[in-house]
Amino acid sequence: MRVASRALGRANLVHAYGHCSVRLDDEHLLVCAAMPMGLVTKEPGVVVPIRGPLPAGVLGEVCVHQQIYVRRPEVGAVVRSMPRYLMSLSAASITPIARHGPGSYFAPSVPLWRDVQLVRSASQAQGVVDTLGTSRAVVMRANGAVVVGGTLEEAVAMTWFLEDAARVEYEVRAIGAADSAVFSEEDSRQRATTAGRIIERMWDYLTVGDVEVDAGTL
């Protein structure tokens, strides 16, 4: 959890805001400390019930994590991020579509939750998770994204993939090629693989040099 928090911070996928969690079992999740993720050192996470009120000091948007774990039993981890390109596109109600390898994991496009308010209630969280559906990510208009994965490593890697898809979306639109540079459904299906240590290699890339990785204390 600490390594993931710092990795997301170093990659500029989060800043003062953002959080991640892992499913511990059917009844509990572990969420990172409520602080800028890049500044996490030895701070422990907080155990949160998947069903029930959030403990004191836990960020309000963790209610989204709770809803995801209840409704998506295959999900083992959640990342809430605010990457640069994704934020810019979402302010215009645009989300990435499948235009390159990393974008294929979110084909045909990333769903958009249109409410610009911070998620602080069960009803809002339900709306976000309804919009997420069976996708790997949901974008919140002008407010970042929520990404899910079977493991924390996968959720972190997919967060990087999502921002790279947003970068490509932004740049393809800038050169006027939005209508031509699109993967087919079959292209996306074949390309969106996790074989060949896809997730593991991205995790290694994002965590290289981390103090706990180098010290072998994980």
Score class of each variant (00 low, 15 high):
S88Y: 05
S88I: 11
L89S: 09
L89M: 05
L89R: 04
L89T: 02
L89W: 03
S90F: 02
S90W: 06
S90C: 08
A91P: 07
A91W: 05
A92K: 06
A92N: 13
S93C: 11
S93F: 10
S93K: 14
I94H: 07
I94T: 06
T95E: 09
P96R: 07
I97P: 01
I97Y: 02
I97S: 13
A98N: 13
A98P: 13
A98S: 13
R99W: 10
R99I: 06
R99C: 04
R99H: 15
H100P: 06
H100G: 10
H100D: 11
G101A: 07
G101F: 11
P102H: 01
P102I: 02
P102W: 00
P102T: 03
P102M: 06
G103L: 01
G103T: 00
G103A: 04
S104R: 00
S104Q: 00
Y105L: 05
F106N: 00
F106T: 00
F106K: 00
F106V: 02
A107G: 00
A107Q: 00
A107L: 03
A107K: 00
A107R: 00
P108L: 04
P108H: 02
P108W: 01
P108N: 04
S109M: 06
S109E: 07
V110R: 01
V110P: 03
V110F: 01
V110Q: 02
P111D: 14
P111T: 05
P111Y: 02
P111G: 10
P111V: 10
L112N: 07
L112D: 13
W113A: 09
R114M: 03
R114K: 11
D115H: 05
V116A: 14
V116L: 09
V116K: 11
V116E: 15
V116S: 07
Q117K: 09
L118I: 08
L118R: 12
L118Q: 12
V119P: 01
V119L: 06
V119H: 02
R120G: 15
R120D: 11
R120Q: 04
S121E: 11
A122Y: 03
A122W: 14
A122S: 06
S123N: 14
S123R: 14
S123C: 13
Q124I: 08
A125L: 06
A125Y: 04
A125C: 08
A125T: 10
Q126R: 15
G127T: 03
V129M: 09
V129Y: 03
V129N: 08
D130G: 08
D130P: 12
T131L: 12
T131K: 06
L132Y: 10
L132A: 05
L132K: 14
L132M: 11
G133N: 07
G133Y: 04
G133A: 08
S135N: 15
S135I: 09
S135Q: 15
S135M: 15
